[in-house]
Design a protein around this nucleic acid. Structure first.
Lengths: 249, 249
DNA sequence: CAGTGGTCTAGACCACTGA
DNA sequence: CAGTGGTCTAGACCACTGA
C-alpha cells in the first residue's frame, strides 16, 4: 500500500539513515514537492492518508506537516487540507553575522581601533530614533574594524544610555559593541537597511579609501520591548566586503 | 505553585488572547528570556518542571520548547537540559523579495524592458558555474526593470537550457524570469553575494547613471538537486534602492 | 454531514549525561 | 542511578469547510 520511495539503502551497506518516523514522512513530502509531484497550490495528502500510508500515529504526521508549514513549504487550512506552497524565493533571506565572529571564523586576525567613545548631547535628528529628546545625553562610539590589518568596517554607533549605562566602560578593542549590547539587552529586534553609497570624508580617511569609492552601507536600529537601544551605521569598502547568504527552503 | 505571569487581561474587557496551552508555555519562556531571567547559557526549567507548573502534558511542553529551539532561542542537550541560547544577532537575516512583488506592493507600476533574449555559446569562465562546458548553448537575458518609469534594476541572467528549455519563449515584459523559473524548478536553493560596486559601461547606459555612481550588486546562483539552474547579476543604482530587513528572534 | 486540520492527554520506551 | 530530552502511540474534543 505504502507509496513511500523504496529505501535505496537496501542494495549496499549504506549507513542507513534510519530516520525517525516523523522525519521519514517529512522527507517523503519534501521530495514530492521538489520533484514537482505536488505543484504549487495543489492539494496534498491529508493527515489521515499519511497515517495509513506510513502506519504511524497522527501526532507523528502532524509534526512533519507542521514543520513543513513553518518552513513555508506548505500551507494548511482547517476544513480544507494541506496545499503545496508557492515556492520561494518570493522572499528569501540573507544572513548577517557578527563581524568579529566572521573574521575569526576565517582564521584571520580582528583588530578594533577606537576613534571615539564618549557621551554627547543628542542631535535633534537622531533623538526620535532613540526615543530621546534633543540635548539628552547619548553614547557615541566610532570604531574601525580591521581584518589582518586591513580596514574592513567603520562602525559609527549611538546608544541609548538608559539601556546600557556602562557602555562606555567597555574595552572595545576586546569586545565588539554588538556583543556587549547583547549581554545587556537580550532578545532584541532589529531593522536593517542596506544600500550602496559613498563614504563621508571622515569614513574615507579612516578606511583609507577615496571619497568616490563605492561602499556597502548598513544602517541598523535595534529595539527591545519597544525601547530603542542603538542606531548604527556600518560602512564597508565595496571591493573588500560582501554579504553572503544561502537560501534553502 | 504556578509562576506564570498573571494574565493582565483580567482587569479590563481585553480581547483575552486565550492562547492554546503550548502557546502559553512558549510565551512564558520567551518573556523570561527577553527579560533576562535566564541569561545566555543558563539552565532553564526542565520539561517535567514545566509540566507541573502549567498542569499540561509533556507533549505540550515539548512543543513549546521545540519551537523555541527552532527559533534559535534555546538549545537543548539530551541528558543535560535546556539552555538559554546566546541571543542574536550573531547571525540574523535580511529578506530579499521578488522585485515585481515589491514594486506592485508599493502600489507602483512595474515595467520590464527586454534588451537581450537569446541562446549563445557558453563562456569558459561561466560554464563551470552552470555545470556546462565552454561552447555549450546557454540562454542569456538582459532586462531592465523600471518602477514608475525609473530604471531600478538591471538583470543580467544566464540559464541552463536543460532546466528550462522554454525559457526564451517567455514574455518577460509580463512575467519576471524569477517567477518563470520558479514554475519550472520548484524548491530551489540559492547562494547570494551582495556588495557595493560600480556599473559596467553598458549597465550605466541602461540605468541612466554615471559609471562612477555606486551600485548595489547582487549575484545569485540557483541550484536544484545539485543541478545549477541560473546565475544572475542584479545591479541597482545605490541611491534608489535599499534592501530592508527585519530581525526578530 | 463527513472530512479536514488544531490541539491536547497520559502514558510509553529510549539514549544520553553526570554522580 | 535519577534526571534529562527525543520520540512515539492511540485515543480525544474541537472548529472549520463544503456538500
Amino acid at each position: 500500500m505504502a507509496t513511500q520511495p523504496a529505501s535505496h539503502a537496501s542494495a549496499g551497506a549504506a549507513p542507513a539513515p534510519a530516520r525517525a518516523p516523523y522525519a521519514r514522512v517529512k522527507a517523503y513530502l519534501k521530495q514530492g514537492l521538489s520533484s514537482g509531484r505536488w505543484p504549487p497550490e495543489t492539494l496534498m495528502p491529508s493527515e489521515s492518508e499519511l497515517v495509513h500510508q506510513f502506519g504511524v500515529s497522527r501526532m507523528t504526521v502532524t509534526r512533519a506537516l507542521r514543520e513543513l508549514q513553518t518552513e513555508g513549504l506548505v500551507h494548511r487550512v482547517q476544513g480544507l487540507g494541506t496545499y503545496a506552497a508557492h515556492l520561494a524565493p518570493v522572499s528569501s533571506t540573507l544572513t548577517i553575522r557578527d563581524l568579529h565572529e566572521e573574521i575569526v571564523g576565517r582564521g584571520h586576525r580582528h583588530h578594533a581601533e577606537v576613534h571615539l567613545s564618549r557621551e554627547e548631547p543628542c542631535d535633534a535628528a537622531l533623538a526620535p530614533k532613540l526615543g530621546l529628546s534633543a540635548g539628552d545625553p547619548v553614547f557615541h562610539t566610532l570604531i574601525v574594524h580591521h581584518e589582518n590589518g586591513v580596514p574592513l568596517q567603520c562602525e559609527d554607533r549611538f546608544v541609548n544610555p538608559a539601556c546600557a549605562p556602562d557602555y562606555l566602560q567597555t574595552d572595545f578593542t576586546r569586545i565588539t559593541p554588538t556583543h556587549y549590547l547583547l549581554t545587556v539587552a537580550p532578545l532584541w529586534e532589529a531593522q536593517y537597511a542596506i544600500e550602496a553609497g559613498r563614504p563621508t570624508a571622515q569614513e574615507a580617511r579612516l578606511l583609507g579609501i577615496a571619497r568616490t569609492d563605492p561602499c556597502l552601507v548598513i544602517v541598523r536600529r535595534t529595539v527591545n520591548h519597544n525601547v530603542p537601544i542603538t542606531l548604527v551605521r556600518l560602512v564597508h569598502p565595496g571591493h573588500s566586503y560582501r554579504l553572503e547568504g544561502h537560501f534553502k527552503p
